[in-house]
């Protein structure tokens, strides 16, 4: 489910986004608000990963999002890799009133970076800002990590922005990826217009960097 789609101007990107975070921080509520603009305080614990989809158009680029909601309890970590493999983005949610849940997010950042490197775009989300009075995670502390957002699924705050921003970043990552692949990691898009590219000898691949290891 990596960045797919066909070539050409009207490209469609398909991204997989996974929501992770401790139980009861509002992962399901975020997805539900974003995809269906609903908020429900009568719902059941998420035990089963489930997904919803959303279609976007960002500056003429079509994006299909498959958003995966996951179970929060530590015990279900065992199934974590199944959920986040092949993800283009991850939304790591904590509850601003719950310091513990913020610590869990930090652990997720570490795990995802270790398992997926920089290929995945991470967002840290402090949810339930409608409960600002009960905040237990200071804004300063929270801002220290990866790209940070503040949301309220209940009041529908910050959620559109979160997903839009994430999509833009995933598009950038996908484009950079394509450039790297398409042009054999050498001179990027500059060679496109006006310059005739002539296929040269197959050996050229070996001559990339002068001396230093260029495995990138």
């Amino acid at each position: 489910m990596a960045a797919g789609g066909t070539g050409g101007v009207n490209k469609t990107y398909s991204f997989k986004v996974v929501l992770l975070g401790e139980g009861c921080v509002g992962k399901t509520s975020l997805v539900l608000r974003y995809c269906e603009n609903k908020f429900n305080d009568k719902h059941i614990t998420t035990l089963q990963a489930s997904f919803l989809t959303k279609k976007l158009n960002i500056g003429g680029k079509r994006v299909n999002l498959a958003i995966w909601d996951t179970a929060g309890q530590e015990r279900f970590h065992a199934l974590g890799p199944i959920y986040y493999r092949d993800s283009n983005g991850a939304i790591l949610v904590y509850d601003v009133t719950d310091e513990d849940s913020f610590q869990k997010v930090k652990n997720w950042v570490k795990e995802l970076r270790k398992m997926l490197g920089n290929e995945i775009c991470l967002c840290i989300v402090g949810n339930k800002i409608d409960l600002e009075k009960e905040r237990n995670v200071s804004v300063q502390e929270a801002e220290g990590g990866a790209k940070h957002y503040h949301t309220s699924a209940k009041l529908n705050k910050g959620i559109e922005e979160l997903f839009l921003d994430l999509c833009k970043r995933m598009i950038e990552t996908a484009q950079a990826d394509e450039r790297a692949k398409g042009n054999g990691s050498s001179q990027a898009g500059t060679a496109r217009r006006g310059v005739q590219i002539v296929d040269d000898e197959p050996q050229s691949a070996a001559t990339a960097g002068g001396g230093c290891c260029s495995s990138g």
Binding site: T28, H43, I44
Partner: peptide, 24 residues
Amino acid sequence: MARNQENGLQTDSQNLRGNSENLL
């Protein structure tokens, strides 16, 4: 997968997103 509390025996394609919708 698609939220599961929905009625598993009914073939209701509208129900793909399952229980949360119904609950709501």
